[in-house]
Amino acid sequence: MTVDVEWFVALSAVLFSIGAAGVLMRRNALVVLLSIEIMLNAGNLALVAFSRTHGVHDGQIFAIVVMAIAASEVVVGLGIVVALSHLRRELDTDELTELHG
């Protein structure tokens, strides 16, 4: 293998930052969920890269568990988005501030 593990981890860091930017900057609840997926995948990439480096399976197991959890999160998150859309028109997180103090 000629591509060093550093490159994969650096890519993971870049993707993670992009996802974080999406979460922080976008107001559409759907896009926020998509951005969270990007962040989770960035984490997965790092896990898998380290797993390869050390030649052990633990990182892959983690990655698969993260996938399952991400899938669950998507189901619940999208369920909330759909329920929310029944309750009110907009899906703008800036409008959903009922829980303010």
Partner: peptide
């Protein structure tokens, strides 16, 4: 309490 403004972002 003003810190808790309800804006998720």
């Amino acid at each position: 309490a003003r810190l808790q403004n309800g804006v998720v972002r």
